[in-house]
Amino acid sequence: MKELVLALVAAGFGLVGTVVGARAAKKGALISAKVTLQQVRDQADVDQAHWLRQQRFQAYEGFLAAWDECLRIVQSVGLLGDSESPGPSPLRDAAGRMTERARRIDILGPAEVAQAAEELADSIRRDVDIATELLKLAEAYVPSVERRATDAAPAMRAAMEAMDEATRQMGEIAAEVAETDEIGRVPPEAAAAFESFDRAQELVDAAMDRGHADMDKVSEFLDRATALMDELKRNQAARERTRERFTTAARHTLAPPGPDTV
């Protein structure tokens, strides 16, 4: 009986040791699994951050390439490109590519860079719109003004010639009356001379009215063109500040992570 009790006690201690060992092993395995899982997660974060940084770099680089393309077009052929070439202007096409690449930046972020990119693309598109409006304005006004000026010159010249002739006739009549010393006598040709003078005055008045109308059209054109040019200058000045903001934000975003960055 005593031997049986001792055997049971010994078995109990052995079982306890086994249980304790199993629990310790399980705890160690759990700790090891957690460490491994955290390492995997950390590495995944690093890989994802590296991938995102690379995607952003490519997107920013592509956007700036489109920006440089716009600048080259402006410097070489102007805002509207080659106006004699069929199809859309080269700058409008390049501005469209800027817009597409700005949308990709909007997806990749961050918001500060995306907003600056969108503002730059909008600014270039606005330049194109302003230049197009200026061209349409010139096409509408300049030929009309030139035609009016071309037509007005002969009309004014004819009016002045008619006035000179009427004045000459009136002078001859006045001289004739003075020579005859017949005060109050009206020569027969005086009525025709007065009519000629009145017609000449009407021609002069009409030519002057037309000249004033032409000047009003020119003033209207100049006022609108000046307003568009002022808007273009403001737009370009604001774009310089936006470009600096984009560059600063992009550099900050693409900077290598610090030692404390996970």
Rank of each mutant, 00 (worst) to 15 (best):
M1Q: 14
V5D: 09
V5F: 13
A7W: 11
G12W: 13
F13D: 09
V16L: 13
A22F: 11
K26A: 15
A29R: 13
K34H: 13
T36N: 10
T36Q: 11
L37E: 15
D42G: 13
V46L: 15
Q48H: 15
H50T: 14
H50A: 15
Q54S: 14
R56V: 04
R56C: 01
F57D: 07
F57V: 03
Q58F: 13
A59N: 07
A59P: 06
L64T: 06
L64Q: 11
W67P: 02
D68G: 03
R72A: 14
I73H: 05
I73C: 02
Q75T: 11
V77D: 06
G81K: 02
D82C: 09
E84N: 05
S85V: 13
G87K: 00
P88R: 01
P88V: 00
P90G: 05
R92N: 11
A94T: 08
G96L: 06
A102Y: 01
R103M: 15
R104H: 12
G109P: 02
E112D: 12
V113L: 06
A114T: 07
A114I: 02
A116K: 07
E119V: 13
S123D: 03
R125M: 09
R125V: 04
R126C: 05
V128S: 07
I130A: 01
L134W: 05
L135F: 05
L137E: 05
A138F: 13
A138G: 15
E139Q: 15
A140E: 15
Y141G: 03
Y141E: 12
V142Y: 11
V145L: 13
A149T: 10
A152M: 10
M156Y: 05
R157E: 12
R157N: 10
A158G: 06
E161Q: 15
A166L: 04
T167P: 01
R168D: 14
G171Y: 00
E176S: 04
I183T: 10
I183Q: 08
G184F: 02
G184H: 03
P187N: 12
A192R: 05
F194Y: 15
S196R: 12
F197G: 03
D198C: 00
R199C: 04
E202N: 07
V204K: 06
M208P: 02
D209W: 04
H212P: 01
M215S: 13
V218L: 11
E220G: 05
D223F: 14
E231T: 01
L232S: 06
K233D: 08
R234C: 06
Q236P: 12
A237K: 10
R239Y: 07
R241E: 12
T242G: 04
T247G: 04
T247W: 03
H252P: 00
H252R: 11
L254S: 04
P256T: 04
P257C: 07
P259N: 02
V262E: 08
V262F: 05
V262P: 04
